[in-house]
Simulated assay, not measured.
Amino acid sequence: MKNQLSNPVLYLMSISAGLVVANLYYNQPLLHQMAVDFEVSQATVSNVALATQMGYAFGLLFIVPLGDMMANKKILKYDFLLMIISLVAAAVSNSIFLLILSSFFIGFSSAIPQLFVPMAAQLASDENRGRAIGIVMSGLLVGILGSRVISGLVGEQFGWRFMYYAATALMVLLYILLQYKLPKLGPDYKGSYGSLLKSIGYYFKTEPSVRLAALRGGLGFAGLSAFWTTLVFLLEDSFGYGSDVAGAFGLFGVVGAIAAAVVGKMSDKVSKNKLIFYAVVLMIVSWGIFYFSATSIIGLIIGIIVVDLGFQALHITNQNIVFSKNPEARNRVNTIYMVGFFVGGGLGTVLGANAYEHFGWHGVAGLGIILTALIGLVHLIFRKQTV
């Protein structure tokens, strides 16, 4: 198995992870356009982003564990069919309710990248596991950031619906490529689907390091989601910028995405407790920068670079921790971690939108400081159980 992880295969998984996960984030720079189109409030339209993230959490819970019991290419066949139908449904939605519903299934079917991460961990040697995870995650993170840039530009020029049509065509092409190039992996688990899902509860109960990683990741992603959901509102209200500029801000987060590969290598050698501590410090600093940058574009740019560096250090370290245990169930422990991660993201979206509506940008920054401080508190109390 180990010799299947050639660099071309590893980078194919990395690029594919980025292209698929982009489906989750196309909507963020387009929320203002959607609100105007459907004549709804900012808080209401934020449910599009919330539904996408919650759908992703459900996909992690019900699709990703299948990686332990079903051939990967079989999963891809059914999942991509649902993904393509959901993207088309979003493009033709004639009400905010239908857009929210189709967004849920876009999120649900876009959980596939989380099969690539444990696959890389499985195929890599022990001493290169962090590197492999970091490279796949770099592609995934570039996809997250690039999606905002692309959708912002496309939305400004052609409208938000065109973005979903373009994403549909891209997913059709990607499916064909993966069917031809991705290694076929057979399952290890021999039980039923019901017992597979039940075993997730077993690992949740017996692995405190996985529970803590899920909590840290969820709190961190809650803050990041609050930021990206409300940034488009801030830029519109305070600077008069449209979706193209809001999306372009994602380019400054590429620094953090590139750093993911470096952090992956570091997490194979440096104390994971130290990496988590440094990550929390960077994130606290970034939210302080955001607090004083409600009228400063330069401040927002610096804050994005710093928050992404801190967040990616936290995320990659969390994943290396969970994948270093229970090699027979990497997809299931990844499910636990990523469900917590995206439930946090969904809550952060709601909290961020409401914080902005009631307290403005300072409320969003204050929320980020509180969420990051909670990560630090949890780490200090339970750091002996981290690894």
Rank of each mutant, 00 (worst) to 15 (best):
S103I: 14
G345N: 04
F204T: 12
G360M: 12
A248W: 00
L177R: 01
Y164R: 07
G253C: 08
Y26Q: 10
T52N: 11
V270G: 01
A169M: 03
Y180D: 00
A248Q: 00
Q319I: 10
N7W: 13
A124D: 01
L314A: 15
V117G: 06
T295M: 12
S151R: 00
S199T: 13
V21E: 07
A166Q: 00
F221D: 04
V322C: 06
Y11T: 10
Y26I: 10
V378F: 10
V9E: 01
H32E: 12
Y25E: 09
L197N: 13
K74N: 05
Y189S: 09
L177S: 03
G143E: 08
Q42N: 05
G201I: 14
G159K: 03
P208W: 15
N326M: 08
L300F: 06
V378E: 09
W228K: 08
K325R: 14
E207L: 14
G376A: 14
L141C: 07
V343P: 08
L351T: 08
M266P: 02
G250V: 03
A246G: 04
N72Q: 05
Y78F: 03
A169C: 02
G139E: 07
L61T: 08
G348N: 10
S138L: 15
Q319V: 11
W160C: 05
F162T: 07
L367F: 11
V280N: 12
S102M: 05
Y278K: 01
N273A: 06
F204I: 11
S238A: 12
A49M: 15
L177H: 00
A49F: 13
V36T: 14
V255W: 05
A121K: 04
G240T: 09
A89Q: 04
A167G: 06
G288Y: 07
F323A: 10
A257Q: 13
H315L: 11
I304D: 06
I370E: 07
D244L: 00
S243C: 04
G201N: 13
L61M: 13
R131F: 06
Y291I: 12
W160P: 09
L351Y: 12
K184P: 01
A246F: 07
N331T: 08
F323S: 09
F62G: 01
G340V: 02
K73C: 02
G59I: 07
L371A: 11
A89W: 05
M1G: 07
A355N: 13
V285M: 09
V172K: 00
G366D: 09
